[in-house]
Nucleic acid binder design. Structure first.
Lengths: 159, 159
DNA sequence: CCGATTTAGTTTCATTTGAAACCAATGGCA
DNA sequence: TGCCATTGGTTTCAAATGAAACTAAATCGG
């Protein structure tokens, strides 16, 4: 009875219902928000630093001299967000922006001494938060999780 | 030589540097954003629906009659966001808000026929996106990943 | 039963965010 | 060389978001 089989297949497809609390995109969004909030709460007011600003500090800490464009790419922020955050960081003398050697439009961004100091203070806090979070997993699980995230990051790019 | 050992320990601690691209909170944020964007892109303009609105539709689809407060809890959105999204959904006749039996302040939210139809159209799209994403993992990996996310969600609540 | 407190939801206002328009310097290339 | 398309970055304007104040109904204590 083909029609019966079809009916059954249709029913099963419908049965695969969307349950928000089990829906991965939703779950990841919640997880990411909880973590970001918790960490930001630990430095935002104390240091008057937003998340985008912190990301820029973090990336410049390791790779000084990047241009805004490169920072945008490295942090996956759009250029407007970078422009604004950099403006604030420069105003606060945490980052210096010098005209780029090869291209007068571009600017070479570097942490100032103050920026470095800030980085040195916040990095341990951030790492400690990560450590606390990951304490919920065993070392093996952490590695596995990390690898899975990498694969999903790739897969998500294709979506 | 204790001092040598100490120096070495200090160095190693410092060596555990913060590398943004490896920093879990950052990676999760990127992953979550990529996924949400990709999925939203598939329904946002077509159906004129924002992510908060979609979440409300999703939760009401499975649990009709919730109050705004309950929706807020179920979706982890704050009540202002729920209030606004519900207002839009009601205006669009996708959701009906009736005075709650037991409490005249509260409203009992339900999908209208239009809302149901919308849910029926979008749920498969959402599930298909999730399926496509998770195709990058084996069944076993998916299960493992899911379980790890659950544990991290718990851990993140404590942060 | 009356006032004080709490709770459901909305509104207001200030800030953040994003898209698109914009300006200025660059890199072809005719 | 001089024009045109491109690229780096900023600005503008509208929409999204969040915190706090607010309205109205419900509950609690006496």
């Amino acid at each position: 009875m083909a029609s019966v089989a079809l009916r059954k297949a249709a029913k099963e497809a419908a049965a695969e219902r969307l349950i928000l609390e089990r829906f991965l995109p939703y779950r990841l969004s919640i997880l990411s928000n909880r973590i970001s909030r918790a960490i930001a709460a630990r430095y935002a007011k104390t240091f008057d630093l937003t998340i985008p600003e912190w990301r820029i500090i973090a990336v410049l800490g390791r790779r000084p001299g990047l241009t805004a464009r490169q920072v945008a790419k490295a942090t996956e922020m759009d250029k407007v967000a970078v422009s604004r955050a950099v403006a604030k960081l420069v105003a606060a003398k945490r980052v210096s922006a010098d005209v780029h050697d090869a291209d007068a439009r571009a600017q070479s961004l570097t942490l100032t001494a103050q920026g470095e100091a800030l980085h040195a203070r916040i990095a341990p806090i951030a790492l400690e938060s990560e450590r606390r979070l990951l304490a919920a997993l065993s070392a093996g699980e952490r590695a596995k999780f990390d690898a899975l995230i990498d694969r999903l990051l790739d897969a998500a790019r294709e979506l």
